[in-house]
């Protein structure tokens, strides 16, 4: 497959010291998590409790989308990222040119520079792996 195009701008944001965290919910009965967060105004809100996700997750699966050449758009990567809170989040993965997604790789939540809502405008970048 072709190499994956570099993100237009290096993603960055005014992240908290310990990283950007997404808002999710935990199903009280099963203990499993769900993203995005169930709204507090929802009639079923009492089935869930609000939780904050870790700043980092692990790639569970991925694809690289190749838009129709007629569109002029460049390929981009999408991932399922699994969080320690037993939550899976789907989103874009920004990669440097020549990099490939890899199942099991750690990723970190970030946002585009013009993001207004982290829970909608999030994306993932590859995090540094801890070498034992």
């Amino acid at each position: 497959m072709d190499s994956i195009v570099k993100a237009a701008e290096p993603p960055r944001s005014a992240a908290p010291a310990d990283g950007i965290r997404l808002e999710a919910s935990r199903d009280k009965e099963s203990g499993k998590g769900v993203f995005p967060r169930i709204r507090a105004s929802s009639p079923v809100a009492d089935r869930y409790e609000p939780i904050m996700l870790s700043p980092e997750a692990t790639i569970y699966s991925f694809t690289v989308i190749h838009p129709n050449p007629k569109s002029g758009l460049k390929p981009f990567a999408l991932v399922y990222a699994d969080f320690a809170e037993d939550v899976r989040v789907f989103g874009r993965l920004a990669l440097a040119e020549g990099e490939r997604p890899r199942i099991g790789a750690p990723v970190r939540v970030t946002t585009a520079p013009d993001a207004t809502d982290v829970n909608k405008d999030y994306l993932f970048v590859v995090a540094e792996e801890n070498v034992q």
Binding site: S30, V34, R88
Partner: peptide, 9 residues
């Protein structure tokens, strides 16, 4: 079913 957590796809 509603998929919660990290199911086996």
């Amino acid at each position: 079913h509603h998929e919660l957590g990290c199911d086996d796809i």
